[in-house]
Design a binder for these strands. Sequence first.
RNA 1: GCACCCGUAGCUCAACUGGAUAGAGCGUUGGCCUCCGAAGCCAAAGGUUUCGGGUUCAAAUCCCGACGGGUGUACCA
Length: 549
Amino acid sequence: MKDLLKQKISTVISELQLPEIEINFEKPKVEAHGDLTTNAAMLLAKVAKKNPRETAKAIVEKLSGAFPEISSIEIAGPGFINFKFSPSYFIEQSKEILRQGEHFGKSAAGAGKKTNVEWVSANPTGPLHSGHGRQVILGAAISKLLEWTGFDVTREYYFNNAGNQMRMLAESIYARYRQELGEDYPFPEEGYKGDYIVDIAKEIVKEKGDTLKQSDDEKLYFKKAGEEWCFTKIKETLERLGVRHDVFYNEDSLYATGKIQEVIEEFRKADLAYDAEGAVWFRATKFGAEKDRVIVKSSGEPTYRLPDIAYHREKFRRGFELIVDIFGADHIATIPDVLAGVEALGYKTDSVKVIIHQMVSFVNGDELIKMSKRNAKVFTLDDLIDLVGVDAVHYFFVMRSANTHLEFDIALAKEQSDKNPVYYLQYAHARIASILRHAVSEGFTPPDAGEYLRRTDFSLIKEKEEIDLLKILIELPEIIQSCALSFEPHRLTTYLKEAAESFHRFYHEHRVINDDKNLMQARLTLCLMAKIVIANGCKILGVSYPEKM
RNA sequence: GCACCCGUAGCUCAACUGGAUAGAGCGUUGGCCUCCGAAGCCAAAGGUUUCGGGUUCAAAUCCCGACGGGUGUACCA
């Protein structure tokens, strides 16, 4: 409809011999301004130097009567053209909800574009902590949104089980191991202080006794054991949240296949790398960075930048047309370097979309929860799930825009009451389910979408709250698409809340179960539509949609 | 110091990416269950969108400058 209208308006504009412009529509905030509005006349006024209201008038005259679905066209304010649609238009649209059912909301806008979403990517040096939650949830929601919008999504987790961090992990475990054996063994200054290190050490003592005490070569064993323990833990946590990755990409493979060396050589050949102070430097300044960066340390080990660059090149080589990276604000420094590197290798950075989310703080009512890295008691993501449940974790981490700081109120999230926004949504779904069950007990057929579509006399839907509900329900596909294309899942939560609200208002004003069987069927159909929309939205967010609660 | 993000009701945050009268939840105050789920609905109060300039028909949104908060600024990742 929007597209048809857009076409029509642009032909009208050329008939009026006005310059060509981009026509945008918007859904007005205020109900009195209709269902759709365009600022075309105002934009024309600017280029054609004409009075916007007069221009609007000329356009409207040519438009009137062109579409039976449009019940009125008005000119308002400085020159907005407001369109109002007839109820039958919304009713017709809403039938799609029943026809598509659990697929309603999907679109093909992504056109099967090969897409890689990389997120979490925490090295296996410990369990995921609560702050990781935002990243975990954000990436899952974005992946789901892209999938629903027709992108071909590969979910990826990049990790490094070599290097400094893992060495430190091994040393930390080793020290705890010796301590477990009753020795006064020094703990490394920069070691991992979490209690889980002690747990790992205990397990090793149980299995191997003191046989690993002497030989330094055996430290390899500690690294392996630590990695395995941590990765198992991480994967269990992701599993609990229903988050799965298709590919776990190990940085090591980049060395094994010579991809790291390849990048260095190419850089050298193009004079983008040089030796200084015993290290190899990348001329990042050539690509807008503030200073050149070391890519191979004087020790001969690459810094994290080099494999990151090689890894991103591999994403291009693997044929991904859209590359999405999700990072926390604490990793922001690496981004310009990686982008510069990719550019240096001759790839366009346009197809790389980096989502940076700000940090999270946790409060419990009024009390701020302090997170210190020195603390042995880590507040893990598992702990958070135990406290507030999977649904609240999903909903709370995604309900705010990624680029603002998030305050996670644990007291609120675990409260089983109306204060908690997760319940508002779930309650609407459970309430609808209950009504449908009730109808079945009154002798109605179980809510089968196809059956409901055939049996319903849609002309009985005419109350204001009924039409308002339909209006919002049919927006789902558009909302999903725009959330996906802007990588902003939080807007879906806002929408779902509004949809639930609209349902509650309808429910409150009109009886569904009543003596008029035909009217009852029509309203049951409305309920079923609302149920489908809420359920589909919840699916994307990873929130459950209970039949009873 | 420099780079990035943010500053909106008492608190936590929205605002369709430049549109019309800036909206929700919590908290506060009041109303609504003989009837399908009151985990709900309705209403009231609460604002110079941190401040100062600019851009234009139109600015919370874009630009410049202050102030305040966060995150970075490694031959750690």
